[in-house]
């Protein structure tokens, strides 16, 4: 978060928000179909300045091409409300505002992939919306599947 943004948001605390995410697996590696159980903690910010928390599990591409991305879980929690706009039946929300936890069953694809010009990454995003209209997003990468890293071809088939 830039200093300019922080100055307005965290005037009460004069600190930056800090989001930490803990995975059930130490290496943050999962197999397709596994349950992703995670909890996140929002610290160093006055909870009263946060109006909404969005939690999502997304995959996105990196590399030479334009970025593509997909959402497999999305959840929106409003301040002062216990209702969550969840689009995922396997998701559960245990809210300790603005921190919380959720769990979802991961899909079969796409698997995390470290290619040469195409890379696929999975991450958990926690996005905080502040009363001023600005937002702050924290991204935490994990791995789905066990695909080896692609390496440049040494020689062509003769």
């Amino acid at each position: 978060m830039t200093e300019r943004a922080a100055a307005g948001e965290a005037s009460a605390t004069a600190t930056l928000p800090r989001v930490t995410v803990s995975f059930a697996s130490d290496q943050a590696e999962y197999a397709p179909g596994d349950m992703l159980e995670t909890s996140y903690r929002v610290a160093a910010i006055d909870p009263a300045t946060i109006t909404t928390v969005e939690r999502s599990v997304v995959w996105y591409t990196e590399g030479k091409g334009e970025e593509d991305f997909g959402v497999v879980f999305f959840d929106r929690l409003l301040a002062g409300s216990s209702d969550a706009m969840s689009d995922e039946p396997t998701a559960s929300a245990a809210v300790d505002w603005p921190s919380g936890s959720f769990s979802i069953r991961l899909p079969s694809s796409p698997l995390s992939y470290e290619g040469l010009i195409v890379k696929i990454r999975w991450c958990i995003r926690v996005r905080l919306f502040f009363s001023s209209g600005r937002d702050f997003v924290s991204e935490h990468v994990f791995f789905l599947g066990d695909i080896p890293v692609a390496r440049p071809l040494r020689h062509a088939v003769s």
């Binding site: 978060m1 600005r134 991204e139």
Partner: peptide, 8 residues
């Protein structure tokens, strides 16, 4: 900025 992104 690394794993964090801010904007409006």
């Amino acid at each position: 900025r690394g794993e964090r992104r801010t904007g409006s």
